[in-house]
Design a protein around this nucleic acid. Structure first.
Length: 564
RNA sequence: GGGCCGGUAGCUCAGUUAGGGAGAGCGUCCGGCUUUUAACCGGACGGUCGGGGGUUCGAAUCCCUCCCGGCCCGCCA
């Protein structure tokens, strides 16, 4: 891709559309982005890049990088393009400070106490790839954390290519970029100085790795572009107020034995990998993106990729923060939600600041369910239907692959999330299915795969109720709860026990509860409360009569008689 | 101080590309389901589209301005 061609095509395109050819309307933002990418006539494969800093915890914010790029990749693939979705692990960066929280191989957050923190301290200043995995499993610190993100992407059904920056340097992939930068120090300084005050006449944008102590250094004393080397001194490095001590070694490094600073490395990646599109968080939007564009055009001689800034979202109303503990990981969320629901969250417009409120996950799931119905034309909302018909196939992805080959997607059943939480109050899978059937969620001809799929949500909703400890967090009590009832209520319970013992279905029991309460002069509310106390040790619960009708009769009778 | 992005019903959001009806779900309230007890059905309530100004026959949408929130404008990524 050359500069001139890109500009020319873009200008022609603008004129053409100004002449009357209106831009295509798209209900899905990924189509708009895909249009922009196609307008540049990129060569296949189209490269979509994301980036990850392998520094501690892969949290849900990183998933933006995965999913935003994924939807654009899928749209382009549908349009007939070959697409690579690559991720650079910026793993040649030095560890600058010891993180307070880490995530183990299962994505669980742990404190420093669970790892060899001293080993981390001794390795400050070294590239992540030169530091051992604190959990002693992966080949390096970087490999551990890059692996976490890759695992999360896999859990979400997104295939990504993870590329190690360290490897790219070692293979010489950055040689040309580094040579271009160091051969034009004047130009680089001029470009960068408009964005960074620290860039002066002495500044050399290359950080050799010290051959003696292995740390990333900052002081280059000489550059020899012909030989492809730089001389350096391993001096102290200032990192946000703290100092990482250099060893004082003076040496010579090749272009493969160091790294470019971020503001040059990022555009360098664009050139090395031929990046056509890259989404990034709003923290980059006003900092390294404008300087990256400048560097790309005026130092590296390439057009920067199509950008997309995504808003950050908050978790429970607060900024994501691993140190403050306001964090949620993909594995955690997949205990609460189907993957397609999480994918749906990232299919919503990226520019909107969104809050993911765990206490109201039922709302997110409800919205997904409605979105899914809309994709089948089952919702009377033209706007939503347009979006859903376009985006739904990308959101469900290969979920359908686990269904029988002849399965009709319209046969799928989604139990309302809160109802699924109600079903989660009992453990028995058959009882769960029966209760859902009684409520009319399954028809006689609902296929087995749809029943099984629907019931998977019960386990997740149950996890949610327990995690939130909310009004659905009830458990059928296996032991008789500690409770006293007045004589009238006690008598009514005994009568109800006799009625149940005779053998009646749930509807009949429900009706009888009202009758019995009246006969004994007990407030219906009080009588139900007594029932909830006995079975759930709570004051409220699901529709009780029908619930009891599904339980084992001897158990219900004994419990109503307060015997067991 | 300068810049970027957001602000639509109690909550979560759609609608902003391409100016024309202010919408959905949930919640709330009322009603229905022989039955006040979370699931099902119906209905209602609910908005100065952050404020103000402008353009226009017409603005949530375009322009200006102000307010609020996040981010960037040191280093680092």
């Amino acid at each position: 891709m050359t500069d001139a061609d890109g500009d020319g095509a873009s200008a022609d395109g603008d004129e053409a559309s100004a002449d009357g050819e209106p831009a295509a309307f798209h209900a899905f933002w990924a189509d708009v982005v895909a249009d922009e990418i196609e307008a540049r006539n990129p060569d296949d494969p189209i490269v979509i890049k994301g980036g990850v800093s392998p520094s501690g915890v892969a949290h849900l914010g990183n998933v933006n990088e995965v999913m935003r790029g994924y939807f654009v990749a899928e749209v382009l693939r549908e349009r007939g393009h070959e697409v690579r979705q690559v991720f650079t692990s910026d793993d040649k960066d030095p560890l600058r400070k010891i993180p307070r929280k880490l995530a183990n191989a299962d994505g669980e957050i742990v404190g420093l106490g669970d790892v060899d923190a001293g080993a981390l301290g001794r390795n400050l200043g070294k590239p992540y790839t030169s530091i051992p995995d604190p959990f002693g499993e992966a080949t390096s610190y970087a490999a551990h954390f890059a692996g976490l993100l890759r695992a999360d992407a896999e859990r979400l059904g997104v295939p990504i290519e993870m590329l190690s920056n360290t490897d790219l340097y070692a293979e010489g992939a950055f040689d040309d970029v580094t040579r271009a930068v160091l051969a034009d120090l004047e130009g680089v300084r001029e470009v960068l100085s408009t964005y960074q005050d620290k860039v002066d006449d002495e500044y050399v944008p290359f950080n050799p790795v010290c051959a003696s102590c292995g740390k990333v250094t900052e002081r280059v004393t000489a550059v020899d572009v012909e030989a492809g080397t730089v001389d350096y001194v391993c001096a102290d490095m200032d990192v946000g107020g703290d100092t990482i001590e250099g060893c004082g070694h003076e040496g010579t490094a090749t272009f493969r034995e160091g790294k470019l600073p971020w503001r040059l490395e990022w555009p360098g990646q664009w050139r090395v990998l031929g990046v056509d599109f890259e989404p990034f968080g709003k923290d980059h939007a006003e900092g390294s993106w404008p300087s990256g564009v400048d560097v790309a055009r005026n130092v590296l001689g390439i057009e920067p990729p199509v950008p997309m800034v995504y808003e950050w979202f908050t978790l429970n109303g607060e900024a994501l923060s691993s140190s403050a503990g306001n964090i949620v990981t993909v594995p955690e969320l997949l205990d609460l939600l189907e993957p397609e629901v999480l994918r749906y969250f990232f299919a919503l417009h990226p520019k909107k600041a969104r809050d993911l409120e765990l206490a109201r996950l039922d709302q997110l799931v409800d919205r997904f369910d409605r979105f899914e119905r809309a994709s089948f034309g089952e919702v009377d909302d033209p706007e939503l239907v347009r979006f859903a018909e376009r985006a739904y196939p990308f959101v469900v992805g290969d979920v359908a692959d686990e269904r029988p080959p002849d399965a009709d997607p319209r046969d799928r059943v989604r139990l309302p999330y809160t109802f699924a939480a109600v079903l989660g109050m009992v453990d028995d899978p058959e009882l769960r299915e029966q209760l859902a059937r009684d409520e009319g969620h399954f028809a006689d001809d609902t296929p087995d795969w749809a029943v099984a799929e629907a019931l998977e949500r019960v386990e997740r909703a149950r996890n949610w109720a327990e995690r939130m400890d909310n009004e659905y967090n009830y458990r059928l009590q296996t032991e008789l709860p500690d409770a006293d009832f007045d004589a009238a209520v006690a008598a009514a319970l005994d009568d109800l026990a006799d009625f149940v013992a005779e053998g009646h279905d749930g509807d009949a029991i429900q009706s009888e509860m009202y009758e019995t309460a009246r006969e004994h002069g007990v407030e219906v509310a009080d009588f139900f409360a007594a029932g909830y106390r006995l079975f759930f040790d709570e004051t409220q619960g699901p529709r009780l009569g029908e619930f009891l009708g599904e339980l084992e009769r001897d158990y219900v009778v004994a419990r109503l008689r307060r015997e067991a």
